[in-house]
């Protein structure tokens, strides 16, 4: 039963997310070629918004994970959706592909510890000297999720993805403040690492699996590529420069 639950929650969460995005789908421009072909979830039929525009099919369905277990993916989904809640500014973190992004990063060179000095000996971090964990980022996130779920279960009786949104936010806030007591690694360093990955997934180029439909770029007004403004910096001085954003895929 405990084995099956996380996966089920992960999938239920995904379905709920799909419903949520349908209601705010108006900002998703239909001419963007980024939606993955497999994106047509059953409940994702285009519908007409009050403004008369055709809302596109929300392109979020949970994708197969490369390296995260169902439990880990469910945890990250719950966390990403609390860090980036769905609202009228953008869909939630997981709907924006943040879980896919994090899975991809942790499955690749970054997750394996590329571009880190990993030689011992190891000692506890000292103020100002940076993280000193012997673990690779994949191992660190794994150990962190395990510790976090143990702590969350002790406090709330369920793992993170089983909690109500307000409780998820409360639990993450405790980790963010370093107040959640984890057995081995600190809850704050774990939360910092998780937050960094979620923000990367939300704001990076969509080719890495996150920032679907450039939702975060639309939210803040970042135009993306090609970013050639020599002829615009004066004409738009003090005036908003608002265009349909473009990503690397649009130029590839």
């Amino acid at each position: 039963m405990t084995e099956a639950l996380p996966r089920r929650r992960f999938l239920i969460g995904a379905a709920a997310g799909t419903a949520a995005v349908t209601t705010v789908g108006a900002f998703a421009a239909p001419d963007i070629a980024l939606a993955a072909p497999e994106a047509a979830a059953p409940e994702a039929k285009p519908e007409t918004t009050p403004t008369g525009q055709v809302a596109t099919a929300p392109d979020y369905v949970p994708e197969p994970m490369r390296i995260l277990t169902a439990t880990e993916a469910a945890f990250i989904t719950a966390a990403a959706d609390a860090i980036i809640p769905a609202d009228d500014l953008s869909p939630s973190g997981s709907e924006c592909g943040v879980v896919t992004y994090i899975d991809g990063q942790l499955a690749g060179a970054y997750g394996a510890g590329a571009r880190m000095y990993r030689a011992g000996p190891f000692s506890t971090p000292q103020q100002g000297a940076g993280e000193q964990s012997p673990l690779s980022p994949l191992e660190f996130i794994r150990a962190g999720i395990s510790a976090a779920n143990t702590w969350v279960k002790g406090k709330y009786g369920k793992e993170l993805d089983g909690l109500e949104p307000a409780q998820v936010a409360e639990a993450l806030k405790a980790m963010d403040g370093g107040k959640a007591e984890f057995a081995a690694i600190g809850s704050k360093p774990f939360f910092n690492a998780l937050l960094q990955l979620v923000m990367e997934g939300y704001f990076s180029d969509p080719m890495y699996g996150g920032n679907r439909n450039m939702a975060s770029w639309r939210m803040i007004g970042y135009p993306g590529l090609p970013a050639t403004y020599a002829d615009k910096i004066e004409t738009y001085r003090g005036k908003r420069y608002e265009v349909e954003p473009q990503s690397i895929a649009d130029f590839s």
Binding site: A114, R115, M116, Y117, R118, A119, S123, P125, Q126, G128, A129, G130, E131, Q132
Partner: peptide, 21 residues
């Protein structure tokens, strides 16, 4: 940094730790 990094400490009475990134 995997090739070469530096170690760091605030003062001579402390032991230095590597900048892992």
């Amino acid at each position: 940094p995997a090739q070469e990094t530096v170690t760091f400490r605030h003062a001579t009475d402390k032991s230095a730790l590597p900048m892992r990134r």
